[in-house]
């Protein structure tokens, strides 16, 4: 295995039975190498298996076919070593904890000593730009801010891999665009491997190094498009012809939609 490969997916398939006994193939023959430090998107419409694929990587699901290794280990071992940070579509914050204590949650579970917990949490909150809200409760924050807390919490355990499942799809476009730039800034600073699930083509093209296009029925990898746009990416990039061409290229890679 290439030294630079962080996650290796080999012929991954996922089939399960519905309540009336039928077979449903959520994913079939997905082979993909995700490199260390790269920002890769899993893009596709509903039913293409992108969330299933993310969950397989996260050890929330076990594939029915194929092999997967994360940094040379099984997903389970990687999870037990806390090598992932996950961000879900909704922030999933605890109403009864302050923002800071929410970020500290995984650190408490890992028995990180108290001073270090507080220190790390504050550093993460500074990274996402929410230091002023450390003592607020989630109920007092907007949707975008809550999602930023979710990102801070995922980063608090210093994982090598950040898994994001449509984290911005519940937010309005203005908030989303701001969070795109925040995310890229954070990624540049921390050098994580990011696996980003989305159904928004321009979001995938703007953020990623590579876009994996998944098509539905059955869920499969149709294409992997290299995004060779210069970094750091800025909003003006979106009106350049290169950007538009890449969006068109990605769009045409979908099959059966």
């Amino acid at each position: 295995m290439d030294e630079r490969t962080e996650i290796m997916l080999d012929n991954i398939g996922m089939t399960y039975k519905t309540n009336d006994g039928r077979d449903v193939t959520a994913l079939t023959s997905v082979t993909l190498d995700i490199r260390k430090g790269e920002f890769i998107s899993l893009l596709g419409p509903s039913g293409c298996g992108k969330t299933t694929l993310l969950r397989i990587i996260a050890d929330l699901l076990t594939p029915t076919q194929g092999n997967i290794s994360v940094g040379g280990e099984t997903p389970r071992q990687a999870r037990l070593k806390q090598r992932y940070g996950i961000v879900f579509q909704s922030a999933v914050l605890y109403d009864w904890r302050t923002v800071r204590k929410n970020v500290m949650l995984p650190l408490e579970i890992m028995h990180v000593p108290k001073e270090e917990r507080i220190d790390r949490a504050d550093k993460m909150l500074e990274l996402v730009g929410l230091s002023d809200f450390a003592n607020h409760f989630p109920g007092q924050l907007s949707g975008g801010m809550q999602q930023r807390v979710g990102i801070a919490r995922a980063l608090a355990i210093r994982p090598e891999i950040l898994l994001m499942d449509e984290p911005f799809s519940a937010l309005d476009e203005f908030t989303r665009e701001k969070l795109h730039d925040d995310l890229l800034r954070i990624w540049r600073k921390t050098n994580k491997t990011v696996v980003f699930v989305t159904h928004n083509i321009s979001e995938a093209v703007y953020l990623s190094d590579r876009v994996c296009v998944l098509s539905p029925h059955p869920g499969r990898l149709s294409a992997v498009v290299d995004i060779d746009l210069p970094r750091p990416r800025t909003a003006q990039l979106k009106s350049t012809p290169e950007f538009t061409a890449l969006v068109a290229k990605v769009r045409s890679s979908f099959e059966g939609v």
Partner: peptide, 19 residues
């Protein structure tokens, strides 16, 4: 999702309940 988060932190059952 709250339970899945705890699962991703490899938390123990006790921690899942108390936290």
């Amino acid at each position: 999702e709250k339970c899945e988060l705890m699962y991703s932190y490899a938390s123990s059952r006790f921690q899942l309940y108390t936290k």
